[in-house]
Amino acid sequence: MTKETPLIELNHVSMDYGQGAESVLALDDIDLEIQKNEFLCILGPSGCGKSTLLKIIAGYQQPTEGEATFQGKVIKGPDWHRGVVFQSPTLYPWLSVKDNVGFGPKVRGVKKDKIDQITDQFLDQIGLLKDKDKAVFDLSGGMRQRVALARVLANEPEMILMDEPLGALDALTRLNMQKLIRDLWHKNKNTVMMITHDVDEALSLGTRVIVMSKQPGTIIKTYDLDYTYQALEKDNHRVKVDEQYLEIKNDILDLINADLNEA
């Protein structure tokens, strides 16, 4: 990976919710760089501040200390260069599948025939082109999450942020979605940051996995991995589980558990 200016840079970022006796320190002095084309996965115990970290990068929240920059500029609020996929798809029920996907380009003033072309392209990528005129409430949970993904992709953002995007899906759908997300990331040369609870998901998707400590969240370990590239090359698109994979997995589980049992 080339070391140009990072896409995202967090410098000593802390986040303190509330004030005085009721204050909750969610993040404590986080330093983090995200390079272009990375697939960063974030693991950590519940309540450790993963979502808070994502919200700061998305621009939904300002850190109480430190600063977060995007392409060298301080993040002041949400914008379309950083697309967000939520845990439950926040599709607009008053718009059809196609219009949901075209929402971003439309509010950005893209011409109508260009929008049609973009929506078709990304609906095709997620395999839902034939359902483009359906109402979103007639889709299954997995299909909705795919549409939510296509809606973000249609803007061709610099970066995609995902907060447990597959958390609400069943195991089989999850596997298919993981493959889809990996393929799309590779094909569209995106940069992704994804929060997950699932160690296998993180190992099989991420080019880098960071593990966070329980509240207040800090980064306790970083792994650079290439399982996701291996999976891309294999016919069945699954990660080959080798000795080293299991070791890392155990290592991560130990880290999270040790951290939880402490105190």
Binding site: A58, W80, G83, F86, V107, R108, R151, V152
Partner: peptide, 9 residues
């Protein structure tokens, strides 16, 4: 929030 992240004014 999602609409803002999609570029909505």
């Amino acid at each position: 929030l999602s609409s803002k992240s999609l570029g909505a004014s």
